[in-house]
Design a protein around this nucleic acid. Structure first.
Lengths: 336, 336
DNA sequence: ACCCTCCCCTAAATCGTTTCAACCCCCCAC
DNA sequence: GTGGGGGGTTGAAACGATTTAGGGGAGGGT
């Protein structure tokens, strides 16, 4: 039932080596022979066995992608980009969720190493970057995704989160808001810290006290936590004029709470999100957000990982840093 | 650099066969030997080469998942469920987007066959189910996802879309809405047709004319098309009381247009969506929606595909059909 | 007629596992 | 003391491709 290169060779009346050549270097085989082999391939419906190929050559046609949460549309977009690039190169993407859990991350890494993937694209769990380094020792190339390399010997593709924070706060200040707060996920996550730093930069640059920025930290970066944060804002005394949220999911959660509570957005409270996921524009109060080129991020990362083993030895590690961009919509406009 | 089973055998002073036994049937090897081998494994950091394993055994530890659009949170959830199940079984998920394009679908199928995946979970492009059948001929097991098997010899996991349509319309009628319309994606997509049929069923059962349901068909099932549909509703004469949308992305698009136009939802226009994605609950007007057990769908599908080759021959094809469930939120409540 | 080239192809080695028949040794039963 | 077991291990044959050294034949130059 399973048809191998041998069957093709037999049917075409040539040796297996020749069939292999037809597959991999069609130019070295005579036209006539090539046609004959091709016919045999079609007739038998032969499809090369990638495992055998990769056992021999040592290089796989698969790359791993480990993200903290595919339910976040931001990472979905990244995955799209990676898949596009991989697919162009005849590679396949193996998708894994770490859920920010070290254990799950390591389990997935183990599986990926077993598969002898060509490379791994990963947003590592903050606590545990070591396993990622061990990969390199194994000769698996690694690209850090959206988390800048503290480590020297890997490529990384990320976005300037600090700049993003600055853009958001500058905008809110320019719109005349003064009482600012930031809703953030766990500050153990680098992205959050950097966005906060950027926010403070903006305050300093505007001659204001960076500690005047109230920081509300919640446990996860999803809609539920956003609602949580919203409740906290409502419950507090001295409600801020404007909120900068560390991602759009948080912002949407907050927004929902505000709308229900009858707080006018942006009239009484301006909101800026981060990521510019599709749902940001589609929210009932379209959300101002800091856009990251998410799909491009994934694509570049995949390209880097695919490129690395082209010139294996004197490969220079790239650190691609994209710039975020503020997309202004209704949720943050000045209200008169 | 790459360490193989041979290196482990040498270090532990046993034969490769024994090492393999330690890996696969630890019980048949003596405690003492087993420990010695285990130590060698740890010391060398040996990780089994899955390609070699699968070349020998013929079965891969990977399953393919082909969906029309990962950007749709519904499919993201399905992917999560599939990954959970796969991961429990030590398998890995290869994710592919077809974009409802036959060409992309076939290209991905080709790659998956090359990888000799254990099985494929697929929501096939409507136009081209044949390539999927060809998979079976190759001995790849297939589970149809969310699209009921017209085909006899595959498993399928789906949700009763017709019932979903009925639930939605029954609810709208019960809330006292009379002038109903349905916003749907291309009727070439089975899910859309079935949801529409279900909607008509409900009208008939209520003694009303099923042709009284206005059907607005748009080209895709995303937010942008939803906005489009919303504009059309606004532009039309005789605006409906209530809208049933074929998925939540459409509903969110419509909702956004209505809110901007100052149409009160649910006061002047009730809206019901489909899928109950997380963003439905998080919308500024929380969306009533027909919930599908999306994550479970993915999980069951993966379990089926993994189970099928356990008992390869006299495998009975299952057709799992889940029932949808109406989740009532504000967007559809009667207003007095 | 001989030798060289060049082109196209073949045969065999190899990748890292799993599996299976054979074997070894020790102990026990008769 | 001999003949079975039987637990534990070994060695070699696969799996399906790629790769490389080499062979055969045609053609051309001298």
């Amino acid at each position: 039932m399973p048809v191998s290169i041998k069957d093709v060779a037999a049917l075409a009346g040539v040796s297996v080596g020749t069939v292999s050549n037809v597959l991999n270097r069609p130019d070295v085989v005579a036209d006539d022979t090539r046609r004959r082999v091709q016919t045999a391939i079609d007739e038998l419906g032969f499809v090369r066995n990638e495992s055998a190929r990769q056992l021999r050559t040592g290089t796989a046609r698969a790359i791993g992608l480990i993200v903290p949460d595919v339910s976040n549309p931001f990472f979905t977009d990244v995955a799209r980009g990676a898949e596009d690039a991989a697919s162009d190169a005849g590679h396949v993407v193996i998708l894994c969720n770490s859920d920010e859990s070290e254990q799950r991350q390591d389990r997935h890494l183990q599986l990926l190493v077993e598969q002898r993937v060509h490379g791994v694209l990963i947003t590592p769990v903050e606590a545990a970057p070591e396993p990622v380094l061990r990969l390199r020792a194994r000769g698996v190339s690694v690209v850090l995704l959206d988390r800048h390399a503290d480590v020297q010997d890997t490529c990384s593709v990320s976005v300037d989160h600090r700049l993003g924070g600055t853009l958001a706060i500058n905008h809110l200040l320019a719109e005349g808001h003064r009482e600012l707060a930031m809703i953030t996920g766990p500050l153990s996550i680098a992205q959050c810290r950097q966005r906060l730093d950027g926010a403070r930069d903006a305050l300093v640059a505007a001659g204001r006290d960076p500690d005047g920025l109230r920081v509300i930290e919640v446990g996860a970066m999803n809609v539920v936590s956003g609602r949580n944060a919203g409740e906290r804002v409502l419950a507090g005394t001295r409600r801020p004029d404007a909120l900068f949220c560390a991602n759009d999911l948080l912002a949407l959660g907050v927004l929902q709470v505000m709308v229900r509570a009858g707080v006018r957005v942006p009239g009484e409270l301006a909101i800026v999100g981060y990521d510019d996921i599709d749902f940001a524009a589609a929210a009932a109060v379209p959300l101002t957000s800091v856009r990251q080129p998410s799909r491009l991020l994934g694509r570049r990362a995949a390209e880097l990982v695919l490129g690395e083993t082209q010139a294996p030895q004197e490969h220079v590690h790239h650190h691609v840093v994209f710039s975020p961009e503020l997309v202004v919509r209704e949720s943050s406009r000045r209200f008169r």
